[in-house]
Design a protein around this nucleic acid. Structure first.
Lengths: 222, 222, 222, 222
DNA sequence: TATGAATGAGTGTTCATTCAT
DNA sequence: AATGAATGAACACTCATTCAT
């Protein structure tokens, strides 16, 4: 009883440990420079043992990806499920994103690893259907908020909300990529966050209906 | 002498031929799927000969990168050096970009190859000093135009022009990456161009001073 | 006692279960494509447990082999131990073989698995002493019948009965190998059986004394 | 000139050397126990070099196979192309086979290696069409001779010549397999040859029309 | 007794790079 | 100057076997 429970726990932990090592290596060296050998060595296991937990490199990497996307979503959800105005929802989403941002890892892993697997990711703004439903969900939620803003007369009624979503996401992604290259504990992070905020604000201004008072478009306000 | 001159010329041309083959292969198959073997075969040379001209794969790829950046700049310069208003200059810059864009090659090579080499590229808007001074020059030119727009009262006087430049560039880059994943002869290219144009227009609206009439901000107008 | 007896019985049965699973997998996938992992999984045991019963793959496979030969013999014995004429005995032997043949399994396992183990099997007609005394017994019985036929004036008195035996067996073996490659449920089996019968008949004709009336050599007659 | 010729010659020889090593290893250890590593080591080359000459294990093995079949055919052709009676042709074919037999290698490699590649070889008597046209050619030639013998009234008019061919071939094959297990320099070879001859003779007797005088069926006579 | 977990030694294959000629 | 030939180190993946519990 106790024994089998402990076994199960250890197994789960070993899995996690392998994933953790893989994640660290990916963040450190880039997806393309991580081999199963490397992962095994870092986890202080034999390659065969790693294969015991993940039956292929693709499966391992995919799991990293999904897990990160899930974790990002988990974090954002609370900010998104309320019945706010579109602009307020966007603000909340932004806040959630910002909070998570101190540690970019989830985003990097989500997007970079998937890109490695599909070598098709970036596209996510072109393709109708994505392989990962988490990514779809993120896109969908943002799009809904943008549409809401149009309805509320805040955003340009001619704005293509799908396109605007993609533009937003590509901006976020771009920052993530940049951040991925900077050591995580860098003192530059506040600068990045500041720049992201400004960029997001600019995009929102760009989305706005002509003549709208910018005070109602602020993303940082309450 | 004539002989040694001809030798020199031939040498230069062979270098170019190798670079050309490498470029084509990269565009065709993606950076990760091009081997020295492939390049040599396409250039109808032996691998060893390729190594005679480029002492490593990294050096070869780096040169492709630099050359593409240079060529992109060459193309854009004429549009930028005139004494136009900031907004007109941006429009011209945009037009130059668009013209080149029908065939993204330079951009793809510039950014994707560098990304492959450094897996560190994206940062280019954060680092003070870039490895490639061409990229620096592009940034500088755009920034100057944005400043001009501020002076002319078209853009928000509080806009951080360096940041705005980086934002623009990252958007461009983002599209390049997307494009790089789509087969080059794709019928999707017009859609990408349309989306890019909209995106650029949104950014310009976002850069604008509050209350400015949007007709003066059009990027596609004369 | 009762307990230890039951334990013993269970142990024997588990052994059998493992062997059964291994046999089925071999027949299904071919000797080379069966791993200890597969066997364990099919037997719903851990690999380690399988090793408890069979200290190596070789030993397990060897046992399959022996067991199949034994079982084949068991089946044939009744047809061979009577006091018939040589030709009648051969006919009976043939009938026994044919009966078993609808399901080649024993033969396939006997010969194919041994072949996998030794890659030395076919030899069985050259070596003085075989590793499996079952095979020896089969050979011996057939040889006795052939000698009988010689004595009865049906077969060529100069016929080397040992050699004739080996020839017969190699023909049988050849068919087994063919059959082993065809999916077991194949509609080709009747064709194989027909061809085997013709072949056996030809051999018997070849064994016959010159001038003997072929009607007395028929293998399919009563 | 001289140089490039020598180079070419060396290359051809290296190819041959690799093939030779592979053949020896196959004959020594059995097809399944030969790895590219082994071959490279035996050839005193790196694995990568072996891949320079043969782009995959399958291609290397296939070449061994084809080459052996070709060589066997080359050897037999002269004996088969004359305008002899069917029985004389069979005798000649037999003689050719016997001559080659002192060194079974060709046959072993032809059949065993193909079997490894297809794991389907043995069937060659069941399938209509073979992958190797050399094997087809061998079968066709023998069948023609058997038909000839039927026409000439020597063989049983009811004999299915295709089946008889398969029977003959499976007998030959059987001996090849046996021989493959005996060390090649064995003093047992004469015994094998004697046994093969007897076996072939028995088959011919079995093929014969009832009542035919056996003196005309001798395979060893002039 | 039974097993989950671990692994060493391979498997075929690829590729940037070197070197003798 | 040019190259054919060679290779070491890597790659993802597999499997018979062992061992602590």
């Amino acid at each position: 009883m106790g024994i089998s429970e402990r076994r199960e726990r250890e197994k789960v932990e070993r899995r996690k440990a392998i994933l953790k090592c893989a994640r660290e290596l990916i963040l450190l060296n880039g997806v393309h420079r991580v081999s199963m050998e490397d992962i095994a060595r870092k986890a202080e296991l034999s390659k065969a043992t790693v294969y015991l937990y993940f039956s292929s490199k693709e499966i391992l990497f995919n799991e990293i990806c999904e897990e990160s996307a899930r974790s990002f979503l988990e974090h954002c959800k609370p900010f998104l499920e309320t019945g706010l105005t579109g602009m307020a929802a966007l603000r909340c989403f932004w806040r959630g994103y910002m909070e998570l941002f101190g540690n970019f890892d989830e985003m990097i892993l989500t997007f970079k690893v998937r890109n490695y697997l599909d070598s098709n990711l970036m596209f996510l703004m072109l393709q109708e259907q994505n392989k990962s439903h988490y990514v779809d969900f993120i896109l969908e939620t943002i799009k809904t908020n943008i549409d809401e803003c149009k309805v509320e007369g805040v955003f340009d009624p001619d704005l293509d909300s799908a396109m605007a979503t993609r533009l937003l996401l590509s901006m976020f992604f771009s920052f993530i990529e940049k951040a991925a290259c900077v050591p995580m504990d860098s003192e530059k992070i506040p600068a990045i966050i500041k720049e992201m905020t400004s960029s997001f604000q600019i995009l929102v201004h760009g989305f706005a209906k002509e003549g709208i008072d910018r005070s109602s478009l602020s993303i940082s306000g309450a």
